[in-house]
Every structure is written in C-alpha cells, then in structure tokens.
Amino acid sequence: MNKPRVKLPEAAKPGDLIEIKTLISHVMETGQRKDPDGKTIPRNIINFFSASFAGEEVFKADLQPGISANPYLSFFMKVPGPGEFEFTWVEDGGNKVVERIKLNVT
C-alpha cells in the first residue's frame, strides 16, 4: 500500500470542530470482476480504517467493496487539546499502514 495523504487544518484551538480528510491509493478490487480468461479476480480491499487522537478513539470505518478505488474518507473532531493523530488502514489479509501526525493546537 502507498503512503496515505492526510489533510488537517494548519492550526486549531481546543474546542474547535475540525474536518480531517484522508486518501490512500488502493485498487479496492471487489471480487466480482473477471480477468480476460474468465477467472474471478480475488477480492482485495481496505476493509477497516481508524483514527485516534492522543490515544482516544475518534472515528472508525468498516469498508466493503462498494467503496471506490483509492478510498477517500473525511470526518470531524472536536479538538480536546494538544495531541497527535494516529490513522490506521487495514487491507484484506491484515497488511496495515499507520500514519502519525501531530495537530498544531494553539
């Protein structure tokens, strides 16, 4: 899996409602398609995403093949104070990508 992209506001104050946007490149193969020889292409998707902040859970998503390739996810958080985000993407088979980004709290 490739390095994900995450967009956070440049700065936030405690109590602010911020939007977090994430994107990761992934084929999100549905398991419904066939190759030119008529064989089914096995399913391979990112099936789980989670975001935590300063060790506390913020948002999670269970994804199915109905999510488009290069899955984009955006969600919100009410800033509790300073801290670091931890984002995790999990692929079928258990491969993981973890990204940690500090939020600039002023």
Partner: peptide
C-alpha cells in the same frame, strides 16, 4: 457499502467518502 463509527470526540456525526 460502509459503516462509519463515531465517538463523543467526533463533535459532529458526519462522514464523507466515494
């Protein structure tokens, strides 16, 4: 298609995807 799970820290019950 998907399940989006929120927490009290979410602040807003809203999510976007494709």
């Amino acid at each position: 298609v998907a399940t989006f799970r929120f927490s009290p820290l979410s602040g807003k019950a809203s999510a976007a995807s494709r």
